[in-house]
Design a protein around this nucleic acid. Structure first.
Length: 433
RNA sequence: GCGGUUGUGGUGAAGUUGGUUAACACACCGGUUUGUGGUUCCGGCACGCGUGGGUUCGAGUCCCAUCAAUCGCCCCA
């Protein structure tokens, strides 16, 4: 009978040692930077009640209608793996009454973790993928919109990602949107028969999405369509102008794209996307971060009427991008000291030395395959060890060890007791630490 | 969900119109040097060609199915 083999599920990935430190670096960069903006990490469940997502993302969004990983658990609860981060955070915000007076407003939180969407995998798109996201709940201020965008831009700049395009748009408030919606329907309906099948369907369900269409013919019609920005109510217009004023003041480059819509239905006022046209992510512009202001969500979950602003960054896409511009991502951490041994009775001494080295805070490794010295040197090379401490029969006899700098090749005999008491005095890391 | 391409060892990759022992390179392991590395030379390393069927005297090479990877669409981060 053939051996049974397994493959990871379609659209998933193994993040292996040798690769994981790169993710840590990016995640750590986010943690540090976001804390400068007074955001703290929130960790919500990876699965929620199905309705948490169904209610928030919008009934017409593909994310809900066809991409959700949902199932009934043994208690017959309808559960879904989170397809995005905002809904869970808002649910948590309400459930934990974080809108209470003892919490500062806006309530700021960021998350890092896996999301799940049942889609066909592609470059930078997985079924289990990861997002870094932020949410700030409880402020109407356009300054917060601008700050949120600035923070996203800051993050990418900190990582050294270049050639990004920031596009912003305003969806206005409820009233703006309804007025515009009607105007758009009035404009598009005469052309309905000529629109793509998808767009025809969207014209009924969610006309704003037609603006998003990549169909060449659709785009011709869209080009002359009325702009949402001409339908903003006075207060929405004021908000919109302030956001731009703040961004200008901060020197952030952006483009206004009245056709940017975004897939989740809960957005209003400011929405934005950060895009790249790097070929590692396929042809054309690919969004690596997107977000905006949303209203009604907190209420939807049974909380007070509070708005939020946030964004999500696709980590797989970001890692692909960073992988292209090597030098940005750190190399695998090098080993400080390799402890080699050779000959009868040296094994125990090497083990003791190994632990002693570690107790000084250095990383250390040894051979576990009874390889000869040559093999141990090779292993040390592979791990990019800075030093080797060699304990052979001769050394053991003399109660010393050979300390060799593997980069310069220089070696010296050092008494074991000296290494045990003052190892750092014998080491010099060139340009490290 | 739709369409294209691909699937041979740890990796890259040869495998003519189906025909004995699956090339080569890198990596790895061992030896060359019974105490020293990133050099040289020698040797070792695929019970099997994604998986399951089928055609055939005979299939990695043909057919069907299936799984996966990859690209585009849809959608999105």
């Amino acid at each position: 009978m053939a051996k049974q083999t397994f493959q990871k599920p379609k659209g998933t990935a193994d993040l292996l040692p040798g690769e994981s430190h790169k993710w840590h670096f990016v995640e750590e960069t986010a943690r540090l930077l976001f804390s400068d903006y007074q955001y703290q990490e929130i960790r919500t469940p990876i699965f929620e009640n199905f309705d948490v997502f169904a209610r928030s993302a919008g009934d017409t969004s593909d994310v809900v209608t066809k991409e959700m990983y949902d199932f009934h658990d043994k208690g017959d609860r309808h559960i879904a793996l989170r397809p995005e981060g905002t809904a869970g955070v808002v649910r948590s915000f309400v459930e934990n009454k974080l809108f209470g007076p003892e919490f500062s407003k806006p309530y700021k939180a960021f998350y890092i973790g896996p999301m799940f969407r049942y889609e066909r995998p592609q470059a930078g798109r997985m079924r289990q993928f990861h997002q870094i996201g932020v949410e700030a709940i409880g402020s109407e201020s356009p300054a917060l919109d601008a700050e949120t965008i600035a923070m996203a831009v800051d993050f990418f700049q900190t990582l050294g990602v270049a050639d990004l395009k920031v596009t912003i748009n305003s969806l206005g408030d409820q009233e703006s949107r309804e007025n515009y919606r009607q105007a758009l329907i009035d404009y598009l309906t005469p052309f309905k028969a000529e629109l793509s099948a998808d767009s025809q369907a969207r014209l009924e369900a969610n006309p704003l999405r037609v603006l998003d269409s990549k169909d060449a013919k659709d785009q011709e019609f869209v080009a002359n369509a009325p702009s949402i920005l001409d339908f903003l109510t006075p207060s929405a217009q004021t908000h919109w102008e302030k956001v731009q004023a703040y961004l200008d003041a901060l020197g952030i480059d952006y483009e206004i794209d009245a056709n940017t819509v975004r897939g989740l239905d809960y957005y209003n006022h400011t929405i934005f996307e950060i895009m790249t046209q790097s070929k590692v992510l396929g042809s054309g512009w690919t969004t690596i971060a997107g977000g905006g202001r949303y209203g009604g969500l907190v209420e939807e979950f049974g909380g007070p009427e509070l708005p939020g602003v946030g964004f999500g960054i696709g980590l797989e896409r970001l890692m692909l991008l960073l992988g292209e511009a090597d030098a940005v991502l750190p190399d695998a951490p090098a080993l400080d000291i390799y402890v080699a041994n050779q000959g009868d009775g040296t094994d125990v001494a090497a083990m003791q030395m190994l632990q002693a080295v570690r107790s000084f805070g250095y990383s250390a490794d040894r051979d576990y395959q009874e390889r000869k010295l040559k093999g141990q040197f090779k292993a040390a090379d592979r791990e990019q060890a800075h030093y080797m401490i060699l304990i052979g029969e001769r050394e053991l006899e003399a109660q010393t060890a050979t300390l060799k700098n593997l980069e310069t090749g220089k070696e010296q005999q050092v008494k074991l007791t000296d290494l045990y008491t003052a190892l750092p005095d014998y080491l010099e890391f060139e340009g490290e630490e």
